[in-house]
Computed example of a mutant assay.
Amino acid sequence: MRARVVRVLAVGAVLAVAALVVPDSAVKSTEVELVKVDRANAVDLSPDVVWILAVGSDARPGEDMTHTRGDALQLVGMNTKTGAAAAIGVPRDSWVDIPGHGFDKINASLYYGGPQLLGRTVGNLVGIQPDYVFVSRFRFFEDMVRQIGGIEVNNPVAFGDDFLKPKGFPKGRIHLTPYDAMAFSRIRHDLIRGDFDRSANQQRVLRGIQAKVRANAAKPGFIEHGVLSVLQHMHTDLSPVELYRLGQAMAQVQPGKITNCVVQGGIGDKGGASVVLPYVDQARRLGDEARKDATLERC
């Protein structure tokens, strides 16, 4: 118990000091952004569940990553009491009604209105409005994986990509380097079900990251170093206390209590572009199942 108290105080001290001494230029970094979502209406959520929409931005160097098209969309819920977590993957090409802009691919909402509009659009589809939106560039994602020494994932089928991964990924339990984790998350053309399988692979990577962090959390300085590293590259409207509470929620997730599903749909054509026509009924059912306790019974 004493060790736990010391650890909590140590992380709290890192957050407090970082808030004071991290250079202003670092605070305004565009590598990662964490935004608290503004809500016009009350949402039926358990006070024990925190929902974060994790987004990978495909912004090019010099572009504002919060106003480009999002590449990876994962709505993640964490139950702070039970240690359960649920991830609902949304294919980026899902054809939906974007508030104020009409129908378009769901990832375009980041371009039109930034994290706030993207959070609202995904929330309208699933029926769960996220509490926070976390946007990161893939370069920073690679850096995060590098800091924890790579990850392990269970790959159900061998696949590759002539550009991103010519030698491919074998079937089975495999180790992913930082670059491999990025490629594993982004490849879709060689996958049987395209965007749906890619979203499932993104969930496998998230599980791998969480498992690695949990396995190393007891090592002296591991959590503190991670917190400081993220703060040095983050722009956020959250207070250090709120950041610390989010960190606690993530650390409490138990690997055996993680469930995940991907919103399915048909394939359509809109203006010559291939799109996903999401099964809204399934998306809402997943939201209803996970809303209060962050668990999914079935996909």
Rank of each mutant, 00 (worst) to 15 (best):
R146L: 11
S229V: 07
A283Y: 04
A215S: 13
I52C: 00
V275H: 05
Q264R: 10
A273Q: 13
D93R: 01
P170A: 09
P130H: 01
D104S: 11
N107A: 06
L286M: 15
H175S: 14
D269K: 10
S94H: 02
T66F: 03
D104E: 14
R291M: 03
D195N: 09
D48S: 14
A72V: 09
A3S: 13
G77F: 00
G62W: 11
K36C: 04
G268F: 08
Y132D: 04
A13F: 11
A87W: 04
P156T: 11
A181Y: 03
A84H: 08
S136I: 03
G62Y: 13
Q248I: 13
V43G: 03
A273T: 12
A181L: 00
I88C: 06
V153Q: 06
L20G: 05
Q116P: 07
K171I: 04
V5Y: 10
V21Y: 10
Q252I: 09
A218Q: 15
F134E: 02
P255A: 11
I128W: 05
M234H: 08
Y112N: 14
R291C: 01
R188F: 05
V49R: 06
V96R: 00
G62L: 10
I223C: 07
A108S: 11
D38T: 15
Y111S: 13
M234A: 12
S229T: 13
S109T: 00
I148P: 08
V8Q: 09
G56Q: 02
A158F: 00
R146D: 11
L228D: 08
T121H: 00
H67P: 08
N41Q: 12
V126M: 06
R120S: 07
P156K: 00
L15S: 12
P255D: 15
V145M: 01
D293A: 07
K257Y: 04
D38W: 04
A10R: 14
V17E: 07
I209T: 09
A10S: 15
A181D: 07
L176F: 02
H189G: 01
G149Q: 10
L206Y: 10
D180E: 15
D104V: 04
N155F: 07
A84K: 00
Y279S: 12
A42T: 15
D48G: 04
N41V: 14
G160F: 07
P23R: 15
L286G: 02
R60G: 08
G89I: 02
E289S: 10
V50P: 03
T236W: 14
S136K: 00
D162L: 12
R60Y: 01
G221I: 05
S229G: 06
V49F: 01
A108V: 12
D97H: 08
N154Y: 05
V96T: 02
R2V: 09
A108L: 15
Q129E: 13
H225V: 05
D38R: 15
E142K: 12
E242R: 15
A251R: 13
R193V: 01
V11G: 02
L34C: 11
L206N: 08
I192A: 15
A18E: 11
V276D: 10
T66P: 05
F140E: 13
M1Y: 09
I128G: 01
R92M: 03
V205K: 03
R139G: 06
N201H: 12
R245G: 03
K28Q: 12
Y279H: 11
C299P: 05
L243V: 09
L296H: 03
L45E: 05
A10E: 14
R193G: 08
R207M: 14
V126F: 06
R60I: 04
S229C: 05
G127A: 10
V43W: 00
